[in-house]
């Protein structure tokens, strides 16, 4: 009769492996959510996909003029524009994914209260959307590397996917926690942009981590510091690749991600009721 598909509905358990299996079963919907977000955004802005390039590019120009040019912020021996752009590229992936993920339950409440699907798809798709922006903006970086004459070494290129994974886990993990809080306390989202901005200044985006001298290990607690530092090392050869740093970042984001999923699952039990 029904190809053996059995659903059992009962009071929700916190977490089970079948949840992940379910996400996999619904992967097509994940694709559709991402596709929708991209399509809608590129339809709404006149310059479409160019927006993904324009934003980090202009930020880079302004930062280069003020921080690199006028303030003479050190940049580990590489030209400031390419130094700051590498940082911005990863930072914007992280921060925009984080802010989207935090609001994802609220922006999609019409669907959440009417249809069932694994809710985890929503944050995943918002990160996937931001990844597309990252990929488009990365084209500028490639151009800049050619212009300034940098050739990354092979390990450097191979490490990029790992760095992206860390960024992904950091934004999803952190985003899930914020999303759960956001459903319950609706004023949190107004504080969020401010919070993310502050976060940028404690991450070595516009300055090198070496600026903190012997205290730079404190910065290592922030996973995005490891990502940005390693990206610069890998692509521009600013420093030697610090594997311990990458290891710490990876471990920290894994824990963050697990905690994020846990919080999200816990909230998931009642958020259709309070949304």
């Amino acid at each position: 009769m029904s190809n053996g598909h059995i659903t059992i509905i009962k009071p929700k358990k916190l977490f089970s492996l079948s949840d992940l299996k379910e996400v996999w079963e619904y992967r097509e919907l994940l694709y559709f959510f991402t596709w929708r977000d991209l399509k809608v955004r590129y339809k709404q802005t006149a310059i479409g996909a160019l927006w993904a390039i324009f934003q980090p590019f202009m930020t880079m120009v302004v930062f280069s003029v003020f921080f690199g040019g006028l303030l003479q912020i050190p940049s580990d021996g590489v030209p400031y524009p390419i130094f700051v752009y590498t940082g911005l590229l990863f930072w914007q992936f992280f921060s925009s994914a984080l802010s989207d993920t935090s609001n994802v339950l609220i922006t999609n409440q019409a669907i959440i209260t009417k249809v069932y699907f694994p809710r985890l798809l929503l944050p995943l798709s918002s990160v996937a959307t931001k990844f597309m922006d990252f990929a488009i903006a990365a084209v500028i970086l490639v151009g800049m590397m050619i212009y300034y004459g940098y050739t990354p070494h092979i390990t450097g290129l191979l490490i990029i996917p790992l760095l992206l994974l860390i960024t992904f886990m950091a934004s999803v993990g952190f985003g899930l926690i914020l999303a759960s809080i956001n459903v319950k306390y609706r004023d949190v989202r107004y504080a969020l942009p401010f919070f993310i901005q502050i976060l940028m200044f404690v991450t070595p985006v516009i300055y090198p981590a070496s600026i903190a001298g012997k205290y730079s290990w404190i910065l290592a607690l922030n996973p995005m510091m490891g990502v940005i530092q390693s990206a610069r090392a890998a692509l521009l050869g600013t420093t030697v690749l610090n594997w311990t740093l990458i290891g710490i970042s990876l471990a920290a984001t894994t824990i963050l991600m697990i905690f994020g999923i846990y919080t999200f699952k816990k909230t998931e039990r009642y958020f259709a009721d309070i949304i």
């Binding site: 009769m1 029904s2 598909h5 059995i6 659903t7 059992i8 509905i9 009962k10 009071p11 929700k12 959440i112 209260t113 009417k114 249809v115 069932y116 039990r269 009642y270 259709a272 009721d273």
Partner: peptide, 21 residues
């Protein structure tokens, strides 16, 4: 509850097949 939008507090539902709501 039947369409799994919100979980029940008590009890159990068993469905032999796919559900569209």
């Amino acid at each position: 509850i039947l369409s799994q939008i919100t979980p029940p507090t008590t009890g159990e539902i068993r469905i032999n097949g796919t559900v569209g709501s």
